[in-house]
């Protein structure tokens, strides 16, 4: 099973991403979102990521979770809201008076947890696709899913260049630091300008790489207009596991949409059925 799972067909992976993208928008309960997030972790775990990839993903997850919870906790402006900590009291000179006080709200933290689970689930599935799919398989899969050739090639090329861009970004940042530039300094204006300037060589490099690759594939007969008509050395067939997984996810998605629609009708006074009370409770509590 584990070996089979690492070799999900590329179309299945794309469909998983699409379904999960819909699910994290539809679901509101932390329990359901946590289940989605844990399922995405299981998916990436069975694709056997390297230690470096795990470390990178962990860093991403920590930063996004911390950033979202903290920012939502502080800037939550819906009501009701309960103050947990007051960081800057309203009486505090200048900043307190100007901002009306800075506080962390319990409901904001809760909202931040939900947002971070949504974001992290899509992040993990995105990493799963990038790390476990070869560019040509992705191009083939997008073609089979009737995605326009130009768009499919752009997506594939963007993924293909992620490691190159990351490597060049590191080189640019290090070379700037070796020329005495400090990214963390009191002069915020200089920091921002330095960061903006560092994008220039990275962007120029991207354009150059993309142009060269584009010309190389065009010189070998690739055309976005005929991308879906290509033959393929490797045949890529979905097997029963792919179909089962897609069927299961689609079933879950359809059920959740149905339940949410029923609950929406009830909550807005459009339709109420006493025989559906269990459904309303389940949707409110679990979804």
């Amino acid at each position: 099973m584990a070996i089979r799972s690492t070799k999900l067909e590329s179309r299945t992976k794309i469909l998983i991403m699409m379904v999960c993208g819909c699910l994290v928008i539809l679901l509101d309960s932390p329990t359901a979102l946590l289940t989605c997030f844990l399922a995405s972790l299981v998916l990436i775990a069975i694709s056997k990521p390297t230690l470096r990839q795990i470390r990178l993903l962990f860093i991403f997850l920590i930063f996004t979770t911390w950033g979202l919870i903290y920012s939502q906790g502080m800037f939550y402006n819906a009501f009701p809201r309960t103050v947990l900590i007051t960081l800057v009291p309203v009486e505090f000179p200048f900043i307190g008076e100007w901002t009306g006080g800075i506080r962390i709200y319990r409901e904001g933290l809760f909202h931040g947890i939900i947002q971070s689970l949504r974001f992290n689930t899509t992040l993990v599935i995105g990493c799963y696709i990038v790390w476990s799919t070869q560019p040509r398989d992705l191009l083939l899969a997008l073609g089979q899913l009737r995605v326009p050739g130009a768009l499919a090639f752009m997506v594939t090329t963007a993924l293909h260049f992620i490691p190159v861009i990351a490597g060049e970004a590191v080189a640019v940042i290090r070379s700037q630091r070796l020329r005495g530039f400090r990214y963390l300094q009191f002069n915020l204006f200089a920091t921002v300008r330095g960061v903006i300037n560092s994008f220039r060589p990275i962007l120029a490099g991207n354009i150059r790489h993309a142009t060269n690759l584009g010309e190389s594939v065009e010189s070998r007969g690739f055309s976005p207009d005929t991308a879906t008509q290509r033959t393929s050395l490797r045949t890529s067939q979905m097997d029963k596991w792919d179909y089962c997984l897609i069927a299961l996810l689609s079933f879950c998605l359809i059920c959740i949409i149905g339940l949410k629609v029923l609950y929406f009708c009830y909550a807005n006074g459009i339709y109420y059925g006493s025989w559906l009370r269990g459904v309303y409770t389940f949707t409110r509590e679990v979804l």
Binding site: R220, G221, F222, T226, Q229, R230, T231, S232, L233
Partner: peptide, 12 residues
């Protein structure tokens, strides 16, 4: 190596 030939619709 197969990439160009696939674009030209050669059989596998």
């Amino acid at each position: 190596i197969a990439f160009g030939l696939e674009n030209l619709c050669f059989p596998p």
